[in-house]
Write a protein that binds this DNA or RNA. Sequence first.
RNA 1: GCCCGGGUGGUGGAAUGGCAGACACGGAGGUCUCAAAAACCUCUGGGGGAAACCCCGUGUGGGUUCGACUCCCACCCCGGGCACCA
Length: 845
Amino acid sequence: MSERAFKPHEIEPKWQDAWEAAGADRAVEDPGKPKKYVLEMFPYPSGDIHMGHVRNYTIGDVVARQARMAGFSVLHPIGWDAFGLPAENAAIKSDSHPAKWTYANIETQAASFKRMAFSYDWDRTVRSCDPDYYHWGQWIFLKMWERRLVERRSSPVNWCPSCATVLANEQVIGDGVCWRCKSVVEKRELEQWYLKITEYAQELLDDLDKLPGWPERVKTMQANWIGRSEGAEVDFELCDAAGEPTGEMITVFTTRPDTLFGCTFFLLAPEHPLVKEFVAGTEHEAAVMDVVQKAARETAVERQLGERVKNGAFTGRYVINPVNGEKVPVWVCDYVLMEYGTGAVMAVPCGDQRDFEFAHQYGLPIPPVVVAEDDPLLEELRGVKERVLDDVPWDEAYAGDGVMVQSGEFTGTPTGKGGEGVRAVTAWLAERGRGKEAVNFRLRDWLISRQRYWGNPIPAIHCSECGLHPVAEDELPILLPMDIDVTKGETLADHPEFYETTCPVCGTPARRETDTMDTFTCSSWYFLRYCDARNSRSPFYRDNVDYWMPVDQYIGGIEHAILHLLYSRFFTKVLRDMGMLGFDEPFTNLLTQGMVKKDGETMSKSKGNVVAPEEMIAKYGADTLRTYILFMAPPDKDLEWSYEGVDGMYRWLARVWRFVNDAAEESANGCGIATSQDTAAKVLNREMHRVTGKVTSDIERFQFNTAIAAMMELTNAAYDYRRDVASGARDLPLQREVAGRLTLLLAPFAPHMAEELWLEVLGARGSVHEQAWPAFDAAAAAADEVELAVQVNGKVRGRVVVPADADVESVQSVALAEVASWVEGKDVKKVVVVPGKLVSVVVAG
RNA sequence: GCCCGGGUGGUGGAAUGGCAGACACGGAGGUCUCAAAAACCUCUGGGGGAAACCCCGUGUGGGUUCGACUCCCACCCCGGGCACCA
């Protein structure tokens, strides 16, 4: 037989050109079809594509291609997250300009994506470093400013000495290192720009419940990051240096107001403004300032190291506990954080492990106020209202549920997390105006300013006469100047021609802001821009966004579980409140794909274990690479690269190729007969229908590995048929139908080969990618006879073949006969028949 | 410490509570060939047995069930996130 050889390198470029010329992948708003927005996180143009890209974008491409065949109007766009520090570092290394490096890499990656046959609508390409994109990033910033969501203020911030810029909280990862360069982050007190994401903390938390299509893991991480705590704010009255009440209040946040009677000291963060005021010129100044300075010097890493020693010092001042009027000493200590709550804490050593340790260290009293029901101590203290015991006999604090003791009128109240005691004490305080219910979040505002050149300029002007002003909307975009030499370490702050301007309010000489925005501001709305990518009057029109959004399927790495995904949710909610769009959440379904590893480790140049996608395309073709990377593991799990596995995938595709060619040729020559009644043909026909259903449902559930396995089973069934049935006796129309079906099912995975088989081998009309996805026929997939396992007391002792529609009684009797020797002489207690599966016989004796 | 995942052959991995190990890689043997490659065929969890077949087996120990990789309880190990957050 003179069949055509499988030559991926000839057919792949041919079809890529043909599809591009035909504009095959353009997204069209077709009112006659349901829409589907399939999106993969856009890449950073860091150089050649790597296997992580191949995996991410292949997953998305299979989903997009299958959706088109299944009758959806599909938006599947691509772009580049093109601002950022690596471009500056690369420019310094190569004595070049970040723009040059960035655009060159975009070209390289785009060419690779085309070679991989990713079916993008290239007309909608977005590059975040293009002025027509970052223009609208600046515009959104101004709109946020109008809505009081932008703030410039001074606070302790994270500083990366290697990147020479500040970082957002979310960008400090692991043991206090920079997310990008892994350097140890320092604390500095600086004035910076913030987006007030905390205004949306509650909604960002609540709306996680609106995302059933997100992995539980990601939602948990976001919920933990937002970190909501319920409790109360309690006002303590300050005393003056002589210990006399001043009438002035200081507020603390606590989750356990029910333990207020156990408060024996009061703590201030080292950075708290009252600290210096309290100790200035007193005998306590030296010791307190020692604690303050030590805390300031401490790096994030030092804080992580081993068992932390708590440092503290008495300030000489007192506050008054509102529930019992007790005078409580005020200490400064390094485990209280200025950024959380009010920077002041009521210490309850019997109920909080940190306070417990601190009290031990400095010899402060630890009176028990909440005692567990099963604690013998409760017998001694039950009903005791006044403080009679000053030190608990415990080795550690008790934070669980229990009964209040030594707590005045509240003594005897059951309490614990959300217990009655919490509500009772809070209500008591509220009645007297000394406290109220309160909620605190761990989430901090998003620090977005960066002291770097290659980013979106912040559109603001500093006037020494009249303050800080936004740039006028019609002056946007503030163009990022190109004549900056980063190889000399220059930033915008080194270029007067950029920053010298006049104040838009008073007209005096003023200074333009020289910080740029965090790149994550660019990636927080790019998915909206794709819906209306060439709009020059607005970031996007609402009609277009409301048509395509929300993203039906979003695909990307787990490393963005908090960062990008949280910021994008925030932007979406703000834009919704601005009336720019009409939905609450940007990404309906999220798939976090696993990493591609080699020898158990992530691929990296320094480890020398990188497998280059382009080399694999050159050796096997893109179809093999695409199919392989989906077959090796479920998409959300890590994948271990195997060269042998790629060989195997190539072999299978070649096997499919030969079968389709043989089936087409035999059909054309007519060297067989139609005998679709025989058993072998029935088996093959059924397998074709079963596999159609399996591949369809597996793609829906992102189980690409089992979808491919099912297609392999169909291939094997086809080869079994050809082996078992002599060439003159084959059912040629069936063979041809199977060949066509396999080609259609394979189209999203191996698009070039499927197209070649469809048009050139099977001689069909119209691109395979424009064909309707084959419908699943359950009746045709059903067998008329089924084999059942017969169990006796849970063990398989035989098998019977029965008609698929056999009634329970006849199945039972056939099954009992099959296992007669196991049942003989025993008492049959029960027979369970599971249709199509098995028969379970229970015997005794 | 708290919160998520996960633990199945030599390997990657399959199994709406229903025959554990689909599919593939690797391995062994074979067909074709002067030979090799390719292709094709057979076998491939462990133990016992000549064989039919039997016993054991999804991290460990219990439980629910006619039946558990799957559900429940306790524990061990691995990976990830958070962590002096009051």
